[in-house]
């Protein structure tokens, strides 16, 4: 059975509307993508981050718009087809003289349907203008290295901020016991206390490396403010953080013994 011309015409009309809807969705998604891309560039996010919301938006938006694709959209644009197009579409499979006459009438009126009638040129122009402006902003911010926030640095700082990064330090060992016995820090009291007694020092010249005759008053010397390049401060090895766990106790005990003696 040959397909009725009206059936083909209805298919074409529906297809045309669907193409316009998809086109509008693609343009909207592009605008969203460019906005997010600009955001990613200004905040130094990876650029592929902009794709995710754009794709999600495109899918949701297109799905929603495609659901609304029906003949009532065409009838809204062309009032002379009001209620007739839907009637013809719903009764496309039936045949009688009245339906045939209605099909002919609607077919004639459908020749006036232009695809351009479904394009909102105002909205399209605005979106293209927005895309052009965003493009210029992207080019400008890239050329002048404009950044509002360095995401990569922030991530690095967060990583470095971790206090117990590589060691599982035994907190027991770090516990500081408070004690009133100051002899461990200050030394033996009997040794430090001089009192009012006069202290006579007798230097045995044979047992001393000091030559009394060559001892003079301290000369006033001018020191350079800038340290010579061959001199640099280095931290003592013992104070480096990278002390293996099994030696930490030894190091601590060492310093403890030093203060005692």
């Amino acid at each position: 059975m040959p397909v009725k011309p009206i059936v083909n015409a209805l298919k074409e009309a529906r297809q045309a509307v669907m193409e316009i809807v998809i086109f509008n969705s693609v343009i909207d998604a592009l605008v969203v993508f460019m906005l997010f891309l600009l955001g990613c560039l200004l905040l130094t996010f990876p650029t592929w981050y902009a794709l995710v919301p754009a794709v999600v938006y495109a899918l949701v938006h297109t799905r929603g718009n495609l659901k609304d694709v029906n003949f009532s959209k065409i009838e809204e644009k062309f009032p002379n087809l009001n209620e007739q197009l839907i009637t013809v579409a719903d009764n496309a499979k039936d045949q009688n003289e009245i339906i045939d006459a209605l099909n002919q009438e609607v077919l004639q009126k459908m020749k006036e349907i232009r695809t351009s009638s479904f394009i909102n040129f105002g909205k399209l122009t605005r979106e293209l203008a927005v895309m052009a402006v965003i493009s210029f902003i992207i080019i400008g911010s890239a050329a002048f290295h404009i950044k509002f926030f360095d995401f990569k640095e922030a991530v690095k700082e967060i990583k470095d901020f971790k206090p117990y990064q590589e060691y599982d330090v035994n907190e027991e060992m770090l516990r500081f016991e408070e004690s009133q016995n100051l002899s461990e820090i200050l030394g033996e009291k009997s040794v430090t206390e001089l009192g009012q007694q006069q202290l006579d020092l007798e230097i045995n010249p044979l047992k001393s490396d000091v030559e009394i005759g060559s001892v003079h008053d301290v000369e006033d010397r001018q020191f350079r403010e800038v340290a010579p390049p061959e001199i640099k401060a280095v931290a003592d090895v013992s104070f480096e953080e990278q002390i293996p766990k099994q030696y930490q106790r030894i190091v601590k005990t060492y310093f403890k013994e030093i203060t005692k003696s």
């Binding site: 209620e83 839907i86 009637t87 719903d90 003289e97």
Partner: peptide, 12 residues
């Protein structure tokens, strides 16, 4: 008979 032939849209 012609009256019954008049088509009607599904939503109506």
């Amino acid at each position: 008979n012609m009256t019954k032939m008049i088509p009607i849209a599904n939503d109506i």
